[in-house]
Design a protein around this nucleic acid. Structure first.
Lengths: 317, 317
DNA sequence: TGAGCACATAAGCTGGAGTTATGAGCAGCG
DNA sequence: CGCTGCTCATAACTCCAGCTTATGTGCTCA
């Protein structure tokens, strides 16, 4: 279970209860219904809002209550209000629904490939962590902008832009590919992390560059933006313990205790705050990098591209 | 749509596509299956892992691909690998599944009320934003600890503890209720936020206390921990534009542009990074507050309570 | 060449979630 | 006072998504 090859689902202890999550967590439709009930104050109203019949809503809520073993709504002849537990459950449910909205926005962009009004090419890290949020914001302001997304490394992004296959790109490399103009939209930093059990986790004196360069680390493969930045900062010296081809795999290996890893701050927010990983202070090494929007030299973004760009730039990171 | 009474689902633009999310996002079971395929490298293996038949897995993945309009896995006679798009989709899916795990952990605690080995009482904000994560961490380390959760305001938490109905409590008030010992586990800060369109959103000079006290704000009701801290900081002067009874409602009103709101940092992380809300700098006012674990004086937590406490204390916030 | 693993296809069963139709409780109003 | 209009609940029926088992095909390796 600690094999570094695993893409990992972040649950080192394995399933603790029989039956998969899907059996214990209501499905998305039910959660959406619950949110609608919370907002509208009535089952029938929520049903209407979602385009289903009132009995359907009633029964869905009821079976959700049975499934969770908790009363969620107080029904009365003149409406329904959430119980205290229901309010809490609804807040947790909202998190799931928000993640689902991001998923949807991303998936839609992945599908639309043809005839979209805005074709975006982005590096993996940006596509993974930032783009869905931007797409949601864009959709909220310009609901009818069809966006397509193509993810790849910096040179792939550059190629797409130069060949006219994409209107706007996002890269995280150290340098801007030739032929492109760019604007910095956010700052990112690579950080060193370990599982809480690792000796470095308790360290208070910052790591020196030499120490970092001498220790075998869990790393992305050579050629990835992350690796480039690290190699540059250390002078080409990063010593791999293992090399993995996705951020997720690196995280999983680190969480599993395989060793220290170097990852983008963006990628580990959740893991840090849930204490599955610990940040190791580093001195002496500059692991900051810029996230940039890029476009073919001279072709300053217009229309939807300009709009998306303005959304991303106001981001504080 | 901008009525402040709405509990809001954070989508100011309304549904932009027909059909609810649930029709466009695969259900949890399918997403879990996808994660398993990513991890195990084979449909059959994933099927076995989830306790379903191989054809079931095959068909589920296939219909997910049809639904999303994107090829997710490359099938071969000796296994299946994710396509590039599939890897991206899987990463987004993992977010949903993680939110579902938090939901599950929370819901389980809400249900178990009786005969649990660890009975927790927590303030709403902590129950909402922090506790699910702690419960997941606890479950990962001590899978068989049944936890029950009761959410309420500070005095309700104190009552439960003193009457022996709870073993460990969490509060966010300014003062520790009488009869309880406490330990600070994290720091929180109230911040002033507005919708991006509000004049204050572009402000660079910090707000003074007087200015804040003179402006009508979207606030939690009197008696809530949040309100107490604000009133104390301003000298009891906070002037409400509207008073709402849940953090969520306050957020929704602020996002909808009803005015400036004062909210816990914990509550608005997502909204800030997605730029649905903007933080307004404040000078001159101390809105920091401690989050505390509490227990009856003298009854220092032991067993599962001690373990949970140690998990929360290592949290950096 | 036969065993073993992978995925796909086919046919049949089942249950959950939907529908319509109807009943019952409470509020407000002429 | 009883009508109207809102709420939610119950009942009977339909239907399809997703499951199962059984079988077929393709690749690899001993």
């Amino acid at each position: 279970m600690s094999s570094a090859e695993e893409t990992g689902d972040g649950e080192p202890g394995g399933r603790t209860h029989t039956g998969s999550l899907a059996h214990r967590v209501p499905e998305l439709g039910a959660l959406e219904l619950l949110l609608a009930v919370a907002r509208l104050g009535s089952l029938g109203g929520a049903a209407r809002h979602l385009g289903i019949s009132q009995p359907a809503a009633s029964s869905r809520i009821r079976s959700m209550e049975r499934q969770l073993g908790v009363a969620l709504v107080d029904r009365s002849p003149r409406g329904s209000r959430l119980t205290d537990a229901g309010a809490l459950v609804t807040d947790w449910a909202r998190r799931i629904v928000e993640a689902a909205e991001a998923f949807d926005a991303g998936a839609q962009a992945l599908r639309d490939r043809r005839d979209s009004r805005l074709r975006v090419a982005a590096s993996m890290t940006i596509a993974e962590y930032l783009l869905p949020g931007w797409l949601l914001a864009l959709r909220a302001q310009r609901p009818d902008t069809a966006v397509s997304l193509l993810a790849g490394n910096s040179s792939a992004v550059a190629r797409r832009l130069l060949s006219g296959e994409a209107d706007l790109g996002f890269v995280e490399g150290v340098s801007v590919p030739a032929g492109l103009d760019s604007a910095v939209i956010a700052h990112d930093r690579l950080i060193v992390v370990t599982a809480p059990g690792h000796p470095w986790a308790r360290r208070r004196t910052p790591l020196a560059a030499r120490e970092l360069a001498e220790t075998p680390l869990i790393l992305r493969e050579k050629g990835s933006g992350t690796r480039q930045v690290l190699d540059a900062a250390l002078g080409g010296l990063a010593r791999p313990l293992i090399e993995l081809s996705s951020t997720t795999a690196v995280k999983a290996a680190a969480v599993g205790g395989a060793g220290p890893a170097v990852l983008s701050e963006l990628a580990v927010g959740e893991e840090l705050s849930m204490r599955r990983l610990v940040r190791v202070p580093v001195a002496d090494v500059s692991l900051a990098r810029d996230l940039r929007a890029v476009w073919p030299t001279g072709h300053r973004p217009t229309g939807p591209a300009r709009h998306l760009l303005s959304l991303t730039r106001s981001q504080r990171s």
